[in-house]
Design a protein around this nucleic acid. Structure first.
Length: 437
RNA sequence: GCGCCCAUCGUCUAUCGGUUAGGACACCAGGUUUUCAUCCUGGGAAGCGGGGUUCGACUCCCCGUGGGCGCGCCA
C-alpha cells in the first residue's frame, strides 16, 4: 500500500505550532517512506476561512519547506459528495434522521450498540472502547451542512489516505471515524496520534504562553530550519545523541515508532539556542545573503567595508538575523547610536576625553594599525597607567561603536581602520567636552 | 460524573529486564588572561507512591496519585 498522508488544517489566519508540528511529522513520514504528502484545507467554516487566512497557511508551509505533492483540496468544495455519502448511509440504515435537540431535522450516524471499537495506534499502541461508551453523532446539521467527522472521513477516503497522523486531541474522534470508514466500506487508515505541546502548567500551549503561531516566530527572526528541528524534537528523538539534524537526516531517521506519547513542554530557551546554532553554522554564503540584505535595507552602504571580516566577527554572535544591523551599524556609518547606559558608565567619566585623545595620538603614531599593534599599544598604556587595559578598552569601545559589547576591540578597530578609529575617538572626546553626548 | 490517554534531571529526551540511568537546553564554577558571544573543562540535577511478576525492575502487571484529552447540529 502506498503511503499517502495529509495535513488538514482549518485556516483561521494563524497557524498554531501544534498544528504545524503535525504537518512536519506527516511530511517527514511521507518523505521517509517515499510516499505522498497532501494538503487539505478544511475551510467549511466560511466565516473564518478567508482568503487571507488560506494565504497565511500556505505561506507558513512554504516558509518551513513543507511542500506537498498534489494540488491542495478544499473541503468546502466537496460538500455535495459529503451529503451524498450521508444520504447513502441513511438509505442503508446506517444513519437516520432526527430532530431532537433543536433546529430541525439532522442526520445522525449509528454507532455500534454492542462489542467494541478498536484500533492500533502507531504511537499509542492498541486502543479500544466499549460500544456502550460510544454515542451516535450528528453527521449532517439541520441546516444541511456536513459536520467535521463526515467531511473528514469522506475526504480521507477519496484522497486514499493511508495514515492519519494528527494531534492527541483526536483520539476520541478516531473511534467515530473508524465506524464511518466501515460504514462506507472503505479501508481504514493507520492512525498515529501525536502528544500535545503544552505550557509550563501542562495546559495546551496557547498564545497566552508566548509566541504560539508560526508567523510570530518568523517575525521574531527565528529560522524555519531551527523551528522545524526544534518542533521535531518535541515528541520524537532519533535514538542517539544527535539533536541538530539536517533535513536529509530527519527524513532518513524519522519513524513513528520513535515518537513519544506523553505531552511535551515548549522550551523557548532551547529554541533560542537552536536558532543560534543554525545561524552560527550556516554556510557563509547563506549568512552573507541575510547580512547584506538587512544592512542594505537599513539604508546603510557596505562600500569600502571588509564585509567578510565583519561577518567573521558577527556570525557567531548573531542570535537572530533581525538583530542585524543594529548590533553592527558602526561598521557602516559614522552616524551610529550611543547606548545611554554605556555613555554614563564608560564615557562621562573624569579624564576620558583626554584618554581618548591620547589613544588617538598613540594610534596615529603606530607604524602599523593591526590587531597586534593596537593591542600591544593599549596594553602598554594600561600598564604605564597602572590601571590595566580595561580602563582604556571600555571607553574606546564605547566611543568607536556606541555599544558596550561586540567583537573583540582590536579586531573591530582593525576592521574600522586607523582613520575612522582616530577620527571617532577625537570626535567623541570633543562632544564630551561640549556636553553634546 | 463517565470514557480514553500520559507519567525519567527544572525542560526536551535516551533506555525496549541487568547501565556508575546517557545526551541536549537551562543553571553554577573555571579557562580562552577587554566586553558580549563563541569555544573548552568541570559541577549539581531524574525514574510520582504502593503492591506484585522476576534471580533481577525506570522498563512488565495491578491499585492509587497527579496531569491531559474527549463527552457540540466546532474543527
Amino acid at each position: 500500500m502506498s503511503v499517502r498522508v495529509r495535513f488538514a488544517p482549518s485556516p483561521t489566519g494563524n497557524v498554531h505550532i501544534g498544528n504545524i508540528r503535525a504537518a512536519i511529522f506527516n511530511w517527514l513520514f511521507a518523505r521517509h517512506a517515499g510516499g505522498k504528502f497532501l494538503l487539505r484545507v478544511e475551510d467549511t467554516d466560511r466565516e473564518r476561512s478567508t482568503k487571507e487566512a488560506i494565504q497565511t497557511l500556505l505561506a507558513c508551509m512554504e516558509w518551513l519547506g513543507l511542500d506537498y505533492d498534489e494540488p491542495e483540496v478544499y473541503q468546502s468544495q466537496q460538500t455535495v459528495r459529503h451529503l451524498a455519502v450521508a444520504e447513502d448511509l441513511v438509505a442503508r440504515g446506517l444513519a437516520y434522521r432526527d430532530n431532537k435537540g433543536g433546529g430541525g431535522e439532522c442526520v445522525i450516524f449509528r454507532m455500534p450498540k454492542e462489542g467494541k471499537v478498536e484500533f492500533t495506534d502507531l504511537v499509542k499502541g492498541h486502543l479500544k472502547k466499549q460500544a456502550e461508551d460510544t454515542q451516535d453523532f450528528v453527521i449532517v446539521r439541520s441546516d444541511g451542512t456536513p459536520v467535521f467527522h463526515l467531511a473528514n472521513v469522506v475526504d480521507d477516503v477519496d484522497m486514499k489516505i493511508s495514515h492519519v497522523i494528527r494531534g492527541d486531541d483526536h483520539v476520541e474522534n478516531t473511534f467515530k471515524h473508524i465506524e464511518l470508514f466501515k460504514a462506507m466500506g472503505a479501508p481504514i487508515p493507520q492512525y498515529a496520534h501525536l502528544p500535545m505541546i503544552v505550557n509550563n502548567q501542562g495546559k495546551p500551549y496557547s498564545k497566552r504562553d508566548g509566541a504560539a503561531f508560526v508567523g510570530e516566530f518568523k517575525e521574531q527572526g527565528y529560522l524555519p530550519q531551527a523551528l522545524f528541528n526544534f518542533l521535531l524534537l518535541l515528541g520524537w528523538a532519533p535514538g542517539d545523541d544527535r539533536e541538530v539534524l539536517t533535513r536529509e537526516e530527519m527524513i532518513q531517521l524519522f519513524t513513528l515508532d520513535r515518537c513519544k506519547s506523553s505531552a511535551a513542554r515548549f522550551d523557548m530557551k532551547k529554541l533560542l539556542w537552536m536558532n543560534g546554532e543554525y545561524i552560527r553554522n550556516a554556510p557563509r554564503e547563506v549568512y552573507a545573503k541575510e547580512f547584506v540584505t538587512r544592512v542594505t535595507n537599513a539604508g546603510l552602504s557596505t562600500e569600502g567595508v571588509d564585509l567578510n571580516g565583519v561577518m567573521d566577527q558577527m556570525q557567531i554572535r548573531t542570535k537572530f538575523y533581525s538583530e542585524i544591523p543594529a548590533t553592527c551599524t558602526y561598521f557602516f556609518t559614522e552616524d551610529y547610536a550611543f547606548d545611554p547606559k554605556g555613555v554614563e558608565k564608560r564615557l562621562k567619566v573624569e579624564g576620558v576625553p583626554a584618554l581618548l585623545e591620547e589613544v588617538a595620538d598613540a594610534f596615529t603614531a603606530l607604524p602599523a594599525f593591526d590587531v597586534q599593534s593596537t593591542h600591544d599599544k593599549v596594553s602598554a598604556m594600561g600598564e604605564a597607567k597602572g590601571t590595566g587595559m580595561g580602563s582604556i578598552v571600555h571607553p574606546v569601545r564605547m566611543a568607536t561603536t556606541g555599544l558596550t559589547e561586540g567583537p573583540g576591540l582590536f579586531e573591530l578597530l582593525a576592521l574600522l581602520g586607523r582613520e575612522r578609529t582616530c577620527a571617532r575617538l577625537r570626535k567623541v572626546a570633543q562632544r564630551l567636552r561640549d556636553q553634546t553626548l
